[in-house]
C-alpha cells in the first residue's frame, strides 16, 4: 500500500514541480499511514533517486527500456501503467504540467481508471480505502470543483505551485525494472528539438507591459514596446489582440495563453476578463491604464491611471527618459 509519484524529468533533469508533488504525496502517504514511492522513466533518470529519497520516497522504481531515451507520452504511459498494475498503489500523483497531465491521462486510459487533474486539495477524510475527495481547478483556475474520485487506484495531478517543496530525508532504495513496450507505443517519441534562444521571455520578465483591444492596432503597440524596453521588460497582450492578428499568440497572457508573475504588470486598454485575469493575477503589482474607471481590471488592480493609453503610455516613457537625463 503506497502513494506513488510519477517524477517528471527531461532527459534526466528533474522538473521543479516534481519536488512539490513529492512533498504533497508524502503528506498524503502519512495521512493514510502508508509509504511514499516514486517512479522515474528511463535510465537517464536513475540519478534522480537521491533527490527522491531526500523528499521522502522510500522506494524509487526505475523503469528501463532501450527505447526510453527521450520523452514519449505513450511509452511513458505504458511503462508507468505496468508498474501501477503490479504495485497497486492507493494513489498515483503526477505534476500539473503538460507532461504530467498527459502521462496520467495515458495511465488512466490504459487501466480504465478515472483521473482528476490540477488538484489543489486532498480531503483529510481519505483513509486509503474510501473515495478521495479533491478540489481541482477548472477554467484555468477561475473556478474550482469539489469532486469525488471513486476507484481502487486514485489518479491525480497536483496543480503547480500548490504545495511548497520541502525535504524530509529517508533511507531509500532503488528498484530497477525492465519494462516491455509493445511496438505500437514507440511512435510518439520526441524525435528532434529546437532549443530556446536565451533571453527574457513573457514568463520570466520582471516587467510586462500588456495591451488589449483599447490599443487599437498592431502599429499602436510601438509606445508599449518602448516603455517595456525602458524597464527591461516585454510586451504582452490580451486574446482580443491575438484574435485581431495584431500580435503573435506567444504574447498572450491568460487561461489559453501564458501565466505570468512579474514584479509589475502594466495592463493598458485591457478590461480584465476572468480568462485574462487568471494569467495575470500572480503579478506582484498591477497598474491598470484604462479610460473606464469601472473596468474590472481597474477595480482589481493595486494601482490605476484613468485615461487614454495613447497619451498616458508615451508620457510615462518621456518621464523615465527625463529622469535618466536623456
Amino acid at each position: 500500500m503506497s502513494v506513488l509519484v510519477i517524477v517528471e524529468h527531461d532527459r534526466g533533469t528533474i522538473s521543479t514541480h516534481s519536488l512539490g508533488v513529492l512533498t504533497a504525496a508524502r503528506n498524503l502517504a502519512k495521512q493514510i499511514d502508508s509509504q511514499l514511492e516514486a517512479v522515474t522513466v528511463g535510465a537517464m533518470a536513475d540519478t534522480l533517486a537521491d533527490t527522491c529519497g531526500k523528499h521522502g520516497a522510500t522506494v524509487v522504481h526505475q523503469l528501463h527500456h532501450d527505447a526510453l531515451v527521450d520523452y514519449g507520452p505513450e511509452a511513458w504511459g505504458e511503462a508507468v501503467s505496468q508498474l501501477v498494475k503490479t504495485l497497486n498503489p492507493k494513489v498515483v500523483i503526477g505534476s500539473g504540467t503538460d507532461r504530467g497531465h498527459e502521462v496520467v491521462a495515458q495511465v488512466a486510459a490504459r487501466l480504465d481508471l478515472p483521473a482528476s487533474m490540477n488538484c489543489t486539495e486532498f480531503d483529510d477524510s481519505f483513509n486509503g480505502s474510501n473515495s478521495l475527495k479533491v478540489v481541482r481547478a477548472r477554467w484555468g483556475g477561475s473556478l474550482m470543483e469539489a469532486a469525488e474520485l471513486d476507484a481502487p487506484i486514485k489518479l491525480v495531478t497536483l496543480a503547480n505551485h500548490t504545495v511548497e517543496a520541502s525535504e524530509s530525508p529517508v533511507t531509500s532504495s532503488t528498484k530497477a525494472t525492465a519494462v516491455d513496450l509493445p511496438a505500437g507505443v514507440l511512435h510518439s517519441f520526441v524525435r528532434d528539438r529546437v532549443e530556446r534562444v536565451a533571453g527574457v521571455t513573457l514568463a520570466t520578465a520582471p516587467v510586462v507591459v500588456s495591451g488589449g483591444r483599447g490599443v487599437g492596432s498592431a502599429e499602436a503597440f510601438a509606445p508599449l514596446e518602448e516603455l517595456a524596453g525602458l524597464l527591461g521588460g516585454v510586451v504582452g497582450c490580451s486574446r482580443a489582440v491575438t484574435n485581431n492578428g495584431w500580435r503573435n499568440h506567444t504574447d498572450q497572457v491568460g487561461q489559453t495563453g501564458t501565466r505570468i508573475a512579474p514584479d509589475v504588470y502594466i495592463a493598458c486598454g485591457i478590461s480584465g476578463a476572468i480568462q485574462h485575469w487568471v494569467g495575470a493575477m500572480a503579478s506582484k503589482n498591477i497598474i491598470a491604464i484604462n479610460t473606464d474607471k469601472e473596468a474590472n481590471i481597474v477595480t482589481k488592480a493595486g494601482y490605476a491611471v484613468i485615461g487614454d493609453l495613447h497619451k498616458v503610455v508615451p508620457a510615462i516613457s518621456e518621464e523615465i527618459k527625463r529622469r535618466r537625463g536623456n
Partner: peptide
Amino acid sequence: GLKMITLQRPPERVSNTQILGTGPEA
C-alpha cells in the same frame, strides 16, 4: 469514477485600487 460534488468560486482578490491620476499628468 470522477463525480462532481459542487462548483466553487476561488476567493476573490479585493483591492483598494490606488488611483495614481488621470491622463498623461499621472
